[in-house]
C-alpha cells in the first residue's frame, strides 16, 4: 500500500475543510440513502420556510391590523366558498392559515430547539458525571432524576410560571412566556438523556481504552469529553430528534393551559389546538394543515437523526 498524498503532513495541512468533506464517507452514505435525502430536503425546506416567513407569508398573522374578523373560518381556496386570497383558508380570527403556519413553525421550532438544547445539555453533562464519577454524586443525581420524573412538564411549567410572575411583577407576560416555556421543557426532558448517557457511560468507563487514557494521566474531564462522550452520544441523537417533536407538542399543551405563548403569537401547536375546537363543526382545515406540517417535519427530522446516528458510527460505515 502506498501512502496517499493526504497523509503526508504538508498535504494534510493544505487540505481544505471542503476537500475533507468531499472525501469523507459521510457524504457518500448520505447520497446512498434516498430516504435520508428526501427527509433532509423536507427538513431544509421547512426550516427555510420558518426562517424566511416574513418574506414568504402573504400576511403577518401577528399583526392585528392585517387581520379581519369578517374573513374568519374561510375554507381553503380550492374548496367551495374559499377565497382566492387565502390559500389554505383562515382560522377563527380571520388569520391566513398559510401565513400562520409559516410563522407558527418559527415559534414552535425556536421553543422546541431551545427547550431540547437545555434538556440535552443538562442531561448529557449530568449523566456523564454520574456515570463516570459514580459513588455518592451518581446516587444523588439519579435520585434527583427519579424525583424529577414524578413531576409532569405541565406542573413544572406552572410552578416556574408562578415564580417568574412573582419575581417580575412589572413585566408583561409576552416577554416572560418564551423563557418560561423553554426552561420548563428543558427541565422536564433532561432525565431521559441523563439515564441513557449514564447507562452507556457505566459500560464504556471500564473499557480498556479509558484505562489506557487514565494511564498516561489524561485528566478525568478530558477523558469524559474525548473518549466517553463520543462513544455514548449515538443513541442521544435519536432521542434528540424524537424529543424535538415532543417538545413542540408539550409547548402546544402548555399554551392551551395558558402558561405557554399568548394566542397573539400562535405556534403550530396553538393552531392545532384552535383547530381542534372547530373539527366537529366541519372546519377541518384549521387542524389538518398545521397537523400535517408538524407530522411531516417531525418525521423528516427523525429520519435524518436515524441516518446521522449510523453515519457517525465508524463501525457501520
Amino acid at each position: 500500500m502506498t501512502p496517499e498524498p493526504a497523509t503526508t503532513p504538508t498535504a494534510a495541512a493544505r487540505a481544505s475543510a471542503w476537500a475533507r468533506l468531499r472525501d469523507s464517507d459521510i457524504l457518500a452514505s448520505f447520497l446512498a440513502s434516498k430516504v435520508t435525502m428526501v427527509s433532509a430536503f423536507v427538513t431544509v425546506v421547512m426550516l427555510a420556510g420558518a426562517a424566511f416567513a416574513p418574506w414568504i407569508a402573504p400576511t403577518n398573522p401577528f399583526d392585528p391590523a392585517s387581520v379581519d374578523l369578517l374573513n374568519s373560518l374561510l375554507p381553503p381556496r380550492w374548496v367551495e366558498g374559499g377565497d382566492p386570497q387565502f390559500l389554505l383558508g383562515t382560522d377563527n380570527q380571520g388569520r391566513d392559515l398559510w401565513s400562520a403556519i409559516l410563522y407558527g413553525m418559527r415559534v414552535s421550532l425556536i421553543v422546541g430547539v431551545c427547550g431540547v438544547a437545555i434538556a440535552a445539555t443538562l442531561g448529557i453533562s449530568l449523566g456523564l458525571l454520574a456515570g463516570y464519577l459514580g459513588g455518592r454524586l451518581d446516587a444523588f443525581i439519579m435520585r434527583v432524576a427519579d424525583i424529577q420524573l414524578t413531576f409532569p412538564a405541565i406542573l413544572i411549567a406552572l410552578v416556574i410560571d408562578g415564580v417568574v410572575r412573582a419575581l417580575f411583577k412589572g413585566v408583561a407576560r409576552e416577554h416572560t412566556a418564551f423563557g418560561v416555556l423553554v426552561v420548563s421543557i428543558g427541565l422536564s426532558f433532561w432525565v431521559q438523556y441523563a439515564r441513557t448517557i449514564r447507562g452507556s457511560t457505566l459500560v464504556e468507563k471500564n473499557k480498556d481504552y479509558v484505562q489506557a487514557a487514565r494511564l498516561i494521566g489524561i485528566p478525568a474531564p478530558l477523558i469524559m469529553l474525548r473518549h466517553v462522550l463520543p462513544n455514548v452520544i449515538g443513541p442521544v441523537l435519536v432521542i434528540l430528534t424524537i424529543n424535538l417533536a415532543l417538545a413542540i407538542i408539550t409547548e402546544a399543551t402548555l399554551s392551551f393551559l395558558g402558561v405557554g405563548l399568548p394566542p397573539t403569537q400562535p405556534s403550530l401547536g396553538t393552531l392545532i389546538r384552535i383547530g381542534n375546537d372547530f373539527l366537529f363543526s366541519g372546519e377541518w382545515w384549521i387542524v389538518a394543515f398545521p397537523g400535517i406540517t408538524l407530522a411531516a417535519f417531525v418525521l423528516a427530522v427523525n429520519m435524518v437523526g436515524d441516518w446521522l446516528r449510523d453515519a457517525l458510527n465508524p463501525k457501520l460505515r
Binding site: D208, Y209, H227, N231, K315
Partner: peptide, 29 residues
C-alpha cells in the same frame, strides 16, 4: 515517571477507542 510506564491490554478490541483514528490513538501519549 508516568511517561515511562505503559500497559498493553488483553483485548485489543476494547483497548483502542473505536471512535478515534489510529493516528490519534498512537499520538495521544
Amino acid at each position: 515517571l508516568r511517561r515511562r510506564i505503559q500497559m498493553i491490554f488483553q483485548d485489543p478490541y476494547a483497548s483502542l477507542d473505536p471512535r478515534w483514528r489510529v493516528g490519534d490513538i498512537v499520538a495521544e501519549p
